[in-house]
Amino acid sequence: MLLADEVSSHHPVLSDNPYQPHMARIVRIYKMVENNHLFTLRFLEDHLAHSFRHQPGQFIMLSIPGAGEMPISISSSPSRPEVLELCVRRVGRVTNALYRLRTNDVVGVRGPYGNGYPMQEIIGNDLLLAAGGLGMAPLRSLLWYALDHRDKFNNITLMYGAKRPEDMLFREELTALVDRTDINCLLTVDADPSATWKNHIGRLPSLFDHAKIDPMRTYAAVCGPPVVYKFILQRLLELSFPKNHILMSLERRMKCGIGKCGHCGIGYKYTCLQGPIFTYWDAINLPEMI
């Protein structure tokens, strides 16, 4: 085996390799919800920790040595750099391997990838974030970006629904937003068996009754399981939202993240390059999308 320093450092495979994972330490594992932990990472190399910049809505490829690599959306806002926060549900082989790791173990990170939310278009407009379940993971980056640059946006509305209060991701920080007057933070649960929930109870679309939305000057960022897309899209279309103002964050199988491996293709677009943020207009034209 050739070690890195035995070969010319100008060899592109060694010096300019887009597949190269950079090692990062798990700084914190926060058990937000059963099997939905929030992992905080920091690059081992200081200069990467300082220089890593992403857009809300982008993702990274996360390597768990020995298990594999997978795409994970970035849950932290670029306005809060130095560490990366990833909200990961324990579902498959690689996520299970991640859940076996402890604080201070190292993982590999490369990216950021994908288009992210079109911030240049959104800035100056109203912003509606609508999420169900795990859909909050990519939207949280956009939420904190908007709140940290509050002067660049008009009205901000968040609608988030979970099954029960204990299933709500980022519950503490989101419930703390309810009292803020610069955002209309609407949180709902389908049921509250423990009778401790002080916010809305009911399905996610019912929150539209509590929001004032001007479709012509609002961008809607939607993320969640298929049922969320179905009912939220229906409401947005009833409100005559322009189809290219409805932004969806999609999940696909990926092996490269950079438009080579072919797995994330939808029609003729690659989720990793032209996505993962697609508009509803894209979805109409690419029938496999939702």
């Binding site: 579902v91 498959g92 199988r253 797995h263």
Partner: peptide, 27 residues
């Protein structure tokens, strides 16, 4: 704990091509 990362030819006709971790298969 050492290992290697290998790439292999794949096909969009294979059943797992668009399968994601949660078990959802887009094709």
């Amino acid at each position: 704990r050492a290992g290697k990362r290998t790439r292999l030819w794949d096909s969009c006709l294979f059943a797992s091509h668009a399968l994601v971790g949660s078990g959802e298969n887009f094709r």
